[in-house]
């Protein structure tokens, strides 16, 4: 049982890493507004949050940042710190939103998307010691609605699909 869960989570983790890297090849989400992302990997985190547990979602989320860090952006680089800040804030707020609000998985996804942006900006303000980047915040906010809905819909389908199958196995 434990081994089964471990294997599944590992596969999901590698999937989220792949999605994260794949996403950086989509030109629209590559530097249009700094920090703006589709957040495909977030669908995996959401799925884990709904099918497994909050703890597992945090593991997946943080490990993903480290793996992408090793593979692409470099461990403890500035971008890495941004991603880590965004990921942690995002996953915690999604867990809280799931537990304490009536939001559906789509709403939770939007919350995650927003908090990812806010987390990145907070880290950027601390590291770069400039408040000017806060001016990107409204744009990140408004774009988090369509991306959040998109990821939310994908996650909803993923959860529906795996819910039955995971039990069967």
């Amino acid at each position: 049982m434990e081994l089964k869960k471990f294997t599944r989570l590992t596969m999901l983790l590698s999937l989220s890493v792949v999605l994260n890297i794949f996403e950086s090849f989509i030109p629209l989400f590559n530097g249009f507004i700094p920090g703006l992302k589709l957040g495909l990997a977030n669908s995996i985190v959401l799925m884990v949050l709904y099918l497994f547990s909050f703890k597992d979602a945090i593991y997946i989320s943080i490990l993903r940042v480290f793996m992408v860090g090793i593979l692409r952006i470099g461990l403890f680089s500035v971008t890495f710190c941004f991603s880590l800040g965004g990921a942690i804030l995002s996953v915690i707020s999604m867990a809280l939103a799931k537990k304490y609000t009536k939001l559906s998985i789509i709403g939770v996804s939007i919350v995650g998307s927003i908090m990812h942006s806010i987390g990145q900006i907070l880290v950027a303000i601390i590291i770069l010691k400039t408040y000017n980047i806060i001016y990107y915040l409204p744009w990140l906010l408004i774009f988090s609605i369509p991306t959040g809905i998109f990821i939310g819909v994908i996650s909803k389908e993923l959860v529906k699909y795996f819910e039955k199958r995971l039990k069967l196995l």
Binding site: T101, K102, L103, S104, I106, G107, I110, V111, I114, P138, L141, I142, S144, I145, I149
Partner: peptide, 17 residues
């Protein structure tokens, strides 16, 4: 999407504005 989701979106739009 349920009612809370729409409220969330509404609030985001207002905060943005």
């Amino acid at each position: 999407m349920n009612k809370s989701d729409f409220k969330l979106i509404g609030i985001i739009v207002i905060v943005f504005l």
